[in-house]
């Protein structure tokens, strides 16, 4: 009896603690969103005047449009390239048993655990040695170094639960290689491919350390935010920050809805 009451207290404490951690994680983002709706030029709390004019300005601003467009182009290209390449990478990671696989699994993950700022600088050195002028194109390349391994890892989780005998069975029942890919392999792996794509897009969208050194004259939203935070603060910082948070939340919620819908569809028929 004594120990079970003790257990209940410990459980309650853990629940409370976890709740506190979740608040800790989301508090800064809430602060940014709140700050974006204030009227003052410099942030002060408690907020005295609420306003949405910084959003209007953001939507009108041409430079914001440029920033958005650069970030979007990089993230889109990174997503497409990394999904295609990581699909094969994940097959090598999780499906085939081949000589060199264990080494490949480890080497491919190295960039994930690598200090990104140092990686960005090394890439800057690499580009200038090769005579490549840095621009948002080179940023796509740099982002891929870090994102490709992550997407490979995410897709591998799905590939691990894929049984190659499904392909054999379909092939045995008369399907061609292409039909096997379309009817069996891609549909079964699609949740992994979709989550890989979402991660690729959002990680590229939010990346700062790699962009900082490899975008050249172009600027992404995180870079711009950083430069304004360090010097020359403008209220546009929380505004763009909030837009980014909102956009990411939107993509995540939308993909949950789609995946859920897809699962239900699969469940019924």
């Amino acid at each position: 009896m004594q120990s079970s009451r003790q257990g209940k207290v410990v459980r309650a404490l853990i629940v409370v603690w976890t709740g506190a951690i979740l608040i800790f994680l989301y508090l800064p983002m809430l602060s940014v969103v709140m700050a974006s709706f204030t009227k003052q030029r410099y942030f002060q709390f408690p907020v005295k005047m609420w306003d949405t004019r910084w959003y209007e300005k953001a939507f009108e601003s041409l430079s914001v449009r440029d920033l958005f467009w650069t970030s979007f182009s990089i993230a889109t290209l990174v997503t497409v390239i990394s999904v295609v390449m990581a699909f094969f990478g994940a097959l090598a990671f999780a499906r085939y048993d081949w000589k060199g696989r264990k080494l490949y699994q480890r080497l491919i993950l190295l960039p994930i655990f690598f200090p990104q700022a140092v990686l960005g600088l090394a890439l800057l050195l690499w580009f200038s040695s090769l005579g490549v002028t840095t621009s948002w194109h080179t940023a796509v390349f740099s982002h891929l170094i870090w994102i490709l391994p992550i997407v490979t890892l995410i897709m591998s989780i799905q590939v691990y639960s894929f049984d190659p005998v499904w392909e054999e069975a379909a092939y045995d029942l008369g399907a061609s290689r292409l039909q096997v890919l379309r009817e069996i392999t891609l549909p079964i792996l699609s949740p992994g491919i979709v989550s890989g794509a979402i991660f690729a897009f959002l990680l590229s969208w939010g990346n700062f350390p790699l962009s900082l050194f490899t975008t050249g004259a172009d600027q992404t939203i995180p870079e711009w935010l950083y430069s304004k935070m360090v010097s020359g603060y403008t209220p546009m910082v929380p505004t763009l920050g909030s837009l980014t948070i909102g956009g990411a939340a939107g993509i995540v919620i939308l993909s949950f809805v789609i995946l859920n819908f897809y699962r239900k569809l699969r469940g019924r028929r």
């Binding site: 499904w166 069975a169 045995d172 029942l173 399907a175 079964i188 699969r266 019924r268 028929r269």
Partner: peptide, 26 residues
Amino acid sequence: CMVFQNLALFPHKTVGQNVEFAMKIA
């Protein structure tokens, strides 16, 4: 055709879709 050791039923298809698979391909 073969009935596999672990059956290899397609997990993303319903019972009906599994049974109809060969006919759909044909």
